[in-house]
Nucleic acid binder design. Structure first.
Lengths: 362, 362
DNA sequence: CGTTTCCATGGAATCGTTTCCACGATATGA
DNA sequence: TCATATCGTGGAAACGATTCCATGGAAACG
């Protein structure tokens, strides 16, 4: 009974479901070595002879052996897997980020478990629990919420985690973020230079660090440029497209509507564009528009959109670098990447001809 | 020695790295039951008393226990994980697809391992090997190549796999695809109705099923509309943006350039738009443009782009449905989703005023 | 030639679950 | 009242790798 392993019990008989469960034991047998030796060869342990290396390699090839990652990491407590949790891959920014992270991780032999929080904390927490159960080696997180949910569990368990794009107040973890201040200051100065005095702002949610940071930067820049501060010029959106549209509608219906609008992320900017079209307001002529986040589509619009650009590629790579350092027991410094205004046609027509110190379109 | 488990050996002593490795054994002890009982409670096995259910639940809560997915699936041979392999998440279509798949999978308790093949077969094969090692319960694959790589291994091993968006000739797996024929026929008929006789086509790679299908549909539609067949009007791209730009450049430099262009996917259409702008050709006036794939950005362009639309949401959900059926041992039929032309301004200006049977812009 | 060192090796314990099996208690039937 | 079915339970054997430990043989040294 026990001498014949159950693998052989279904020869060609009925169907071949779940056949081919080749284990390291089979490889060892085929190579004529012990499982210990086979394991050492497979994991590149130098304590192996050329002979057994060769024979094991041949057996692996012949049997099409793929080591069981579960068993491997159960014993070794490493999964070679990292979790990436973003708010929505449909947001081009996060898609680009996911791609960058995934490629960087791949280079280091890590696979990515991807999750979408859909800008909701409960979904984030649900995913984090999954990642904990999966025993990922580390987590790259664009966080939601105030850090009172499962994020605390991560800390308590000492699971290597880094924040990307966003941070959470009161949670001290390495992060890769963008310095919004410089880009937004440039944008406001640029618009002011074009003669705009009423610059509307479609803000992100104040529960998210980037939403707060960019709003603060906007207020600061308004003050620095000695522009009148008018709370009515600010619309609070949720970083999603529909709220960009809503923001435009509200702002344009003001008694004194803005002559320029700055949107705090790309989906809201897209929503804004859609609504401006629908309302018949010509971008770059009737109203100037600048978006935070640089995604390729903005350059294709007519007129092309001015943007505050930051390198999502760098952000992804840096996040992986940081995480790997944490996994190796380090405590790396957080990284702040720069942002930079790119002026295009959507904002380069002066508002009041005559009051201008001109910046040119590119 | 053996009576005190090693967890307790580092009390508050030095540092708390990798503390809190709570196992089901700890839960069982805390609840005063055996590990068997604890396991049954956790997995919802009905053979448990209300009393132990209660006590175990309390212990789980108190110890913040997260079952080790590795150990669990090592024993049970189920990982509750499915692999999704697309060619590039930065492509909005695949980002939308990934989101749909991920949400549908989540509803069924599955997590997603995401991979980017970057339109390259070697990266696809590399990822497939990872997925095999991870023992994912199933794979949703937008395949590359001719099916002679690792895809064969999937079949041999009987790993539940479905194709999405694309298929591979000679590999008989359930799939969810789009019927390109209808949409493309509509598009060509529409353009012909506008008076266009020279309709350029920026094709996808013929190594990919969607590239072939759509090209065939284009040829068929050209013939059906009794338009002159001119091989020079076809440019073969690679489904990426740069090749869309290249295609436009080539087509517009013909002795007899086309008056309308159909692009076989959205990145190439984006590239085409960029190049048309650069060459000063006004879309919707100088040249008509229609894109396969409906992504929200196309509606924001001025003029808005006519598209051949298909529901990526449906595609994602259907793929998950199919895969779950395969995992349950079924052999579901493949699904073909419809495509539909949406006419917008980019194609609704008649080419030769006077020859028209008018379709109106919406 | 004997002793030590070194190195590759085989065997066994282990990781944290699930699942099988046997058992004792209780409820049910005759 | 005794036999039988039912049910929850504890204990132990898997699952497939890694890793520790002891060992045997070859090489190196005296």
């Amino acid at each position: 009974m026990e001498t014949i392993p159950k693998k052989n019990c279904s020869t060609d008989h009925e169907e071949v479901r779940r056949v081919n469960t080749v284990t390291i034991k089979d490889v060892a047998a085929a190579a004529g070595v012990s499982v210990g030796t086979a394991s050492r060869v497979l994991s590149g342990n130098p304590a192996t002879s050329a002979a057994s290396r060769e024979r094991v390699a041949a057996a692996v090839e012949r049997l099409d052996f793929h080591p069981n990652a579960q068993a491997r990491s159960l014993r070794s407590t490493r999964t070679r897997t990292i979790g990436l949790l973003v708010s929505d891959v449909r947001n081009q920014f996060f898609a680009d980020l996911a791609h960058a992270v995934e490629q960087a991780a791949l280079e280091h032999g890590y696979a990515i478990l991807l999750g979408n929080a859909n800008e909701r904390e409960d979904q984030q927490d649900r995913y984090l629990n999954t990642l904990i159960s999966q025993r990922v080696d580390g987590i790259i997180l664009a966080p939601q919420g105030d850090g009172n949910g499962v994020i605390r569990s991560l800390l308590r368990r000492g699971i290597p985690t880094v924040f990307v794009d966003r941070t959470v107040d009161g949670i001290d973890l390495p992060s890769v973020t963008t310095d919004s201040v410089h880009g937004i200051r440039q944008a406001v100065a640029h618009l002011a230079g074009q003669g705009h005095t009423r610059i509307g702002y479609i803000a992100g949610p104040q529960s998210i660090s980037t939403g707060r940071d960019r709003f603060t930067a906007y207020n600061q820049a308004i003050a620095d440029n000695r522009l009148p501060k008018d709370p009515a010029l600010v619309y609070f959106g949720d970083f999603q497209a529909a709220s960009g549209s809503a923001g435009v509608r509200v702002l344009l219906n003001l008694d004194q509507p803005p002559t320029a609008i700055l949107a705090a992320d790309s989906p809201m900017a897209a929503g804004a564009v859609a609504m401006l079209h629908r309302m018949g307001s010509r971008i770059g002529t009737d109203i100037a528009l600048v978006a935070f986040d640089d995604i390729e589509w903005f350059a294709l619009l007519q007129p092309a959109l001015s943007v505050i650009s930051h390198s999502v590629e760098d952000m992804g790579r840096a996040a992986v670098d940081l995480l790997l350092q944490v996994i190796d027991g380090g405590t790396p410094e957080s990284i702040v990447l720069p942002s930079e205004l790119i002026v295009r046609a959507s904002s380069s027509t002066p508002n009041h001809p005559g009051s201008v110190s001109g910046l040119r379109k590119n």
